[in-house]
Computed example of a mutant assay.
Amino acid sequence: MTSFDTFTIDTEHTRRLAHELAAVSRASPTPSPELPIEPVVDGFSSAFNAAMENLTARLAQVRADAGAVAESSFRMAREAEETDSALASACGGL
Rank of each mutant, 00 (worst) to 15 (best):
T2Y: 06
A60S: 12
L17G: 10
G43A: 06
D42A: 06
S72N: 08
E81G: 07
G92K: 11
A86K: 13
F48A: 06
P29L: 07
P29N: 12
R26C: 06
N54R: 12
D84A: 13
L35G: 07
E53Y: 08
L94S: 15
C91F: 13
T2I: 06
G43T: 05
A51H: 12
R78P: 01
V62F: 15
E20M: 08
D65C: 01
R16S: 09
A18K: 05
S46M: 00
A64S: 11
A64K: 03
L59K: 14
L35K: 00
F4P: 04
T14V: 14
T83L: 13
R75N: 05
T30P: 04
S46L: 07
S89T: 12
S45N: 03
R63Q: 15
M76S: 02
A47M: 03
A47Q: 00
E12K: 12
V24K: 10
R26S: 13
D84W: 05
R78Y: 10
S3A: 09
T2E: 03
A90R: 03
A70Y: 02
E71F: 06
V69A: 13
S89P: 04
H19L: 10
I37E: 10
A23W: 06
G93P: 07
E38S: 13
A80R: 07
A66Y: 05
V62W: 14
D65E: 04
F44N: 04
T30G: 00
V40D: 06
T83G: 02
A70Q: 01
E12Y: 07
L17V: 08
P31V: 04
A57Q: 09
A64C: 00
S89A: 11
T6M: 12
A86C: 00
N54L: 01
F74V: 08
P29G: 09
R16H: 06
N54M: 00
D42Q: 00
T2G: 10
S46I: 09
E20R: 06
P36D: 13
T6C: 08
P39T: 12
S28A: 13
A80N: 11
A90E: 10
A68T: 14
H19D: 14
M76Q: 04
P29W: 11
T14K: 04
D42F: 05
N49V: 01
S25I: 09
V41Y: 08
T30K: 01
N54W: 06
D5E: 06
N54Q: 10
L21I: 09
E20C: 14
T8F: 11
E20N: 14
L55S: 03
R16P: 03
S73V: 03
S25V: 07
